[in-house]
Design a protein around this nucleic acid. Structure first.
Lengths: 235, 235, 235, 235
DNA sequence: CATGAATGAGTCTTCATTCAT
DNA sequence: AATGAATGAAGACTCATTCAT
């Protein structure tokens, strides 16, 4: 009886586990392939060669190339979301701090790298891949955007000067970060991740000069340094 | 560019002229195809169908597909350069004005449109196309960037506050504009060209608050309105 | 079928019995698949899905796909043979009656249905499957054909008119029945099984007008009615 | 003149062959392949190998494998129709004669051969191919069937005995011919085309004994002999 | 110059079969 | 016995490129 239990609980768990792991391995191999060869150069053959599996297996797990690509996108989105939550959890309950946390999440080494950027831009850059992107990630994107708006509103309340639209500023912020990412992709030598993070904080400073002064910046700089050890998330 | 006129009126070069026209038609058809189907969906068959020529002819004028894509990139870069010169020529000799002119050029309807953005991002997004991009346009890009630096330096001299690196700011500016372009591509409904132009000027304002005040902005807004009639740049 | 209970409790033949049942389940699932998807659409995956077993098991019981298809054919042939014997056993020892019994067997609901027809024609229609058919069923077919010849000979002796070849007539009869089956398959709405049976008897009448008159037909019609309750021979 | 012919046949080589000819060559190669390997064994590779072209060319002319198969069916249907018209044109305006002409058309060597039968049954035998068949040929089939009904009605008027339904008889006739075709396919040695034609006429005789007597049969037999030289229609 | 038929290597996808568990 | 993950050889279809006309 005990043995029966051991058998029944052991087999499925291992099987299921293996299944998830295989899927992940294929997803990561696909990301590797996209970064190396571009989306159009990412063939099932190349993906499975990188993953060290047979071609047939990829279709066994994903049915479709498109579904594999969707899974890649979902994986990236999930990962970004997780990193974001992590940074927000560490930040104190203050709009300015939380905006900084958002920036830190955006340029966290686990999330922001030439390779990762290559994948996002691969999907953004191709008309048909863009459809996949819209289907899978746009909701997540929108949610993140709208999470920023209240923070900005809080900060705007502290600021002098002419009234500004919080949503508008949020869009501009995201656009700026996207632009930095693009340059990380195009000129990886000139645009280092950490510098971009600082550039993003500078941008916050110029948007909300009264909130982010030199002192707070220095503090955050030190704060961020703790995160910046490029811990590539192992396999 | 004015030299073109000389060519069109001169009889002896009729054959050459036809050749140039054919090439241009194919380049524009290619751009159309990229915008419609993405880079991966842009086949020689589709391009020549749009251009109304035969497949053989395309291979006659552009030895192979890669050279055709190079020509597309070169064409876009040339056009951007021309528009930039035009805007600079109209601007008075003042750093602030010239920066505004740069922004106006960047978001000129002839140069900035979802279709055009689609093409740039198609090249940026694909690893192998990125090689073509680097080979063809990077020089132009760098030149433009370095043209901005002196302007920024001039403005920085007028500003109070801590010293800032002009080159650094230039990179940030370009990144911001790239980000706006990306959003014009991804969310054409939310990101209208004219709004992005204004957003870019706002950005300048927050960078150089003492130079660009509300008054000058209003003036520039009026200035820009003159350009904004969406004149689709015919063949 | 009630035997199942006995089987599960009986130790000695349990294994063998289970084996037979599994084989039968797989054979019937294969027939289902052929009828639904055609021979070319009948994959091991689909068959085992219908049967509710694993792919591996099918390959365990039938070394490979071809042997499974052979088994299907053998199963159909055996079933037809059994039904034929049943009808012959019920018929009195008279050539005319036995011919009618043959017809009734041919169009017995357990043997003749769009689904069954689909399977036979699937094998006849495909060049490579035809080889399997020849290997497995031709002997049975020939045997049946030759069983008919003596009956026809007896009836021919009763008939007036020019001498006719019994074997020739037998071939023609079988061809006619095959043709009816094909139409049951192609036009299931226009060709109902029971009508075809009557058409076949009409054919007999036109072949042996002196033997099969209106009276005998009516009698047979009643006879056949007893068999016609469409008892789908399910598991 | 002879030289002209030599030139015109020599110069165009394979290239300038009319599009229609190429299509026809591919259709005939497909028919060959179906007869040899069955529908499921008919791969584009095999078809093009038989046709002596490249794989790509078949897709250039037919876009789809399914469209190629449709074209095969259409070709067969057209050919049958043409042969039927030819036979009807030769027959005098008499219902009996026209029915014989129909039989002769059905078993004309250009239309009825193991190879041709293999193709029809290939489409009838496979569930998915049956859909193509229905889409393409059923209309033609129905038309032919309904052309027979008036002829049968005329003959029935001449006959004694109980009233019979003309449409019903027409269905039975077609079924019989289908059955003969099936046997030509399954047992090409036992079922020769010419014998089947005679068997079909015998069938007519037993259906309309007063119309088709021994004399008329003999005459038709002679008549048909003129057609029976198996002229395989060259390439 | 211009055409577009022809080619064949490359891509995704399917599926019978095997084998470790 | 039973499972189903894993394999890889086909198969259909695409597409840049060539070349005869």
């Amino acid at each position: 009886m005990t043995q029966d239990d051991t058998i029944t609980t052991k087999a499925p768990t291992r099987r299921t586990q293996a299944k998830v792991e295989r899927r992940l391995a294929l997803i990561e191999a696909t990301m590797e392939a996209i970064a190396l060869y571009g989306l159009s150069g990412t063939t099932m053959a190349r993906v499975t060669e990188i993953a060290g599996t047979s071609i047939g297996l990829a279709n066994f797990y994903f049915e479709n190339k498109e579904l594999l690509l969707e899974a890649v996108l979902q994986h990236l989105a999930d990962q970004e979301q997780a990193v974001l939550q992590e940074h927000l959890a560490q930040a104190i309950d203050d709009p300015g701090e939380r905006l900084i946390a958002l920036v830190d999440a955006r340029f966290d080494p686990r999330v922001c790298a030439p390779k990762t950027a290559a994948i996002w831009f691969a999907f953004w850059g191709d008309a048909s891949a863009r459809l996949i992107y819209r289907r899978v990630v746009q909701r997540t994107d929108d949610a993140r955007l709208e999470a920023v708006v209240p923070l900005i509103k809080s900060l705007l309340a502290e600021q002098d000067g002419p009234p500004r639209d919080a949503y508008d500023i949020a869009l501009g912020m995201e656009a700026f970060y996207d632009g930095l990412w693009l340059n990380i992709l195009l000129y990886p030598d000139d645009f280092q991740r950490a510098d971009c993070r600082n550039r993003a904080v500078d941008h916050l400073t110029s948007l909300f000069p009264q909130r982010f002064n030199t002192l707070s910046l220095a503090a955050n700089g030190a704060n961020q340094a703790a995160c910046s050890k490029d811990m590539t998330h192992g396999p």
